[in-house]
Simulated scan of single mutants.
Amino acid sequence: MSLGKIDTHAHYVPPVYRRYLADEGFFGGQSTPDWSPEAALEEMATLGVQTSVLSVARPGFWFGDVGKAAGMARQVNEYAADLVREQPDRFGLFAALPLPDLAAALQEVEHAFDQLHCDGVVLLANTDGVYLGDPRLDELMAELDRREAVVFVHPNALPAEPVPGVPVFVADFLLDTTRAALNMVRNGVLRRYPRMKVVLSHGGGILPYAAHRIASLTPMGEGGQVDRAGFLAECGAFYFDTALTASPHSMPSLLAFARPGHVLYGSDWPYAREDNSEYFTAQLDEYPLDDDVRRSIERGAAESLIPRLAQPR
């Protein structure tokens, strides 16, 4: 019997986080989804998932109060770490950080890795308009690089008004991820911190499809010169998940762009409403792939990033 998938794009909503969002009046175009460990395990069985690596999603914790954000990050990380300790073969954890406060984020990195033994961290593509790749985050990037961390990048709302009637998660999320990826490459983050492994949500937004356009129009570094080949080469360091992405139209572009072993399975449950987790998982299950490529996407690439999840074939 084959081993089940490893889901690297799986969210959780502990009760304390639900109350926090309600108290802050957050509404991101959809209600905060219902979630429980039991419901997660049921959905995992439906999707053929052995292990879900849990992360919080947008909006994170930032509503203008450093103390509240740091306290909530600690609580939700400890909640998930308890689940991992209880069922280490079923759950993993990408710990959340209370950005934009750099000092608080660095403290949480230390706690998450040294005390909670997390599997990586989740970072929003932008927090309060500051995108990943911004030099103000270099100290955090250096610490994550020192720890050889897996960094899961999840989109946020753009720092701009949405199109009326179009929720931000429909299209803006794709641009937000692409902006963060572009900014990280433009500022040499992947080159300067090569031990950090960066996973882009939702197939990297539009990056695989538009990479040559972006590379041809983006000045690189302090010199401000376009370096098409250099830009594309640095993009090769990214990993990509299949959440809300796998289809007969998107998979050829993603597989042509990503390095072998750099595509991972993702469900985006429970934020992928209705039947969307099942729909896109079925698209992946039905897509014609070599056996080695399928095993890599379903769990092999995740095993290389999170060795504790590796199991003998």
Rank of each mutant, 00 (worst) to 15 (best):
N187D: 06
T178Q: 13
R192K: 15
H202E: 10
V185T: 12
I214N: 04
R195K: 15
L207R: 07
M220F: 04
P219W: 03
V199P: 00
L190M: 14
V226E: 00
P219G: 00
V199Q: 09
E222Y: 00
H202W: 03
V199I: 15
R179M: 11
I214Q: 07
A180L: 08
V185I: 14
T177E: 00
L182Y: 06
N187V: 01
G204P: 11
V199A: 08
Y193P: 14
A210L: 12
A181F: 07
Y193L: 12
G224E: 07
G188T: 08
E222L: 06
V226M: 02
I214R: 05
S216R: 05
A211T: 09
G224A: 03
P208K: 14
L207N: 07
T178F: 10
G203K: 09
M196Y: 05
N187C: 03
K197P: 15
K197I: 05
A210T: 13
G221E: 02
V198F: 07
M184S: 10
G204M: 01
R192M: 12
V189D: 06
L200G: 06
Y193A: 14
L175N: 12
A180Q: 04
D176I: 02
D176P: 13
R192L: 13
T177P: 02
A211P: 14
G224I: 00
R186N: 06
V226N: 01
G203I: 09
L200H: 03
L190C: 11
A180M: 08
N187E: 08
Y209D: 09
R192D: 15
K197M: 10
V185E: 08
L182V: 14
L207I: 08
D176F: 11
I214G: 02
P194M: 11
R186E: 08
T178I: 05
L200K: 00
L190S: 10
G205T: 02
V199D: 04
A180R: 06
G188D: 04
I214H: 05
R192Y: 11
V198E: 00
G223A: 13
G221H: 01
G204Y: 11
V189Q: 10
R213T: 00
A215K: 07
L200A: 03
V226W: 04
V199E: 02
L190E: 08
V226T: 05
Y209S: 13
L175A: 13
T177V: 11
A210G: 08
S201G: 05
S201M: 04
Y209E: 08
A181V: 11
G223Y: 09
R179H: 14
T218G: 09
G203L: 05
E222W: 01
R179E: 07
A181M: 12
L190Y: 09
A215P: 10
M220K: 00
N187W: 01
P208Q: 14
N187A: 07
L190K: 06
V189H: 04
A211R: 12
I206Q: 14
S216M: 05
A210E: 07
Q225L: 12
L182F: 03
R192N: 15
R195D: 14
L190V: 13
G205Y: 05
S216E: 06
A211I: 09
H212F: 07
T177S: 04
R195G: 15
T177I: 10
L217V: 03
G221N: 01
G203Y: 01
V198D: 01
R192T: 11
G221P: 02
Y193H: 15
R213L: 06
A215I: 00
